[in-house]
Amino acid sequence: MNKSFLSLILAVAGWAVFHFGLFPIFTPAEPGMLINRYVYFLLFCFYLIIVNVGMKLKPAMALRALYVWMLGFYFYDHILSPHVPWTLFITYMMLWTIGTFLYISQDPVTFREFRAPIVKTIIGEYKLARIVAFSVLPVLVGWATYQSIYPSFAEPVELRTVHPAPPASTKVHGKTYMLEKISNPFRIDEQDNYKDSFPFLDADKQEYMKFVTEGGTIFFQNCHYCHGDQLNGLGMFAHAFNPTPANFIDPGTIAMLQESFLFWRVSKGGPGLPNESTPWSSAMPPWEEHLTTDEIWKVILFEYWYTGWHPRTFDDESAVGE
């Protein structure tokens, strides 16, 4: 019994040293082959084994089971990174608990050994343990009941379609455009030829860069408040809106859309969205109210040039079929 107690003290003290002393060292900003959290965890496991085997402590079975279970808990809660969602965490811990019981009941001897202190507590051979356990547990049950009855409210979760299906045609400034037919009138050349050209500097020399500069000017007078100076959807007003503004750097936005889709979204804004895209809370203005058709196309040209993405295009002919 005394040796078990010594084992427990060594385990707790060892954990404290590892967790508060070594863990920060093993989790630098850029982990290496040896200095990483998993190596740290292995070291801690080795520590436990070496201390208990090396000092021949032979802790009680119940204590050993506790070590095994806690190691699992520590691993899933602290070591495994990024942390798994809590539903998955509970599933893992249930499996780990079953595993711990397998370890306990590997043969009848270990099982009885595990059971012995529990039985002794129940029948009162360990007097103090019985008093503590039998008075604390009902209080815990009462507290858990209180917690589960106490009403709590979380804001409702709302899902929305980010890129809804576009209409076949849209009417902007009195003119009807078939979205499948139109292309950007200012895309007069291959975008990649202007990777190393610069707005303002080359605007006089290259017509394409003149359009990009004009588009950028409009962007930085109107759009950056939400979509950000970096076009990453983190403008100075972005945090106030929900849904948050689109991030054009992300491969899931303008990189997978056609320019005509952008033309429709920019012209019609939030109010032009279908219901599944929550038009009532989108802060995107119907830009036809503020910009001319040409200005809208130039902004679109700029957004692709700045991010380096290429707009999706229609294939001339279907690849399958015949």
């Binding site: 009902p138 049950v141 009941t145 209180y146 009855i149 106490y150």
Partner: peptide, 19 residues
């Protein structure tokens, strides 16, 4: 928010006694 339910005051002791 609704007022706190009365069960908040009698259920925990009942559960503790049952335990």
């Amino acid at each position: 928010e609704p007022p706190l339910p009365d069960s908040l005051y009698y259920m925990p002791p009942i559960m503790a006694v049952v335990f």
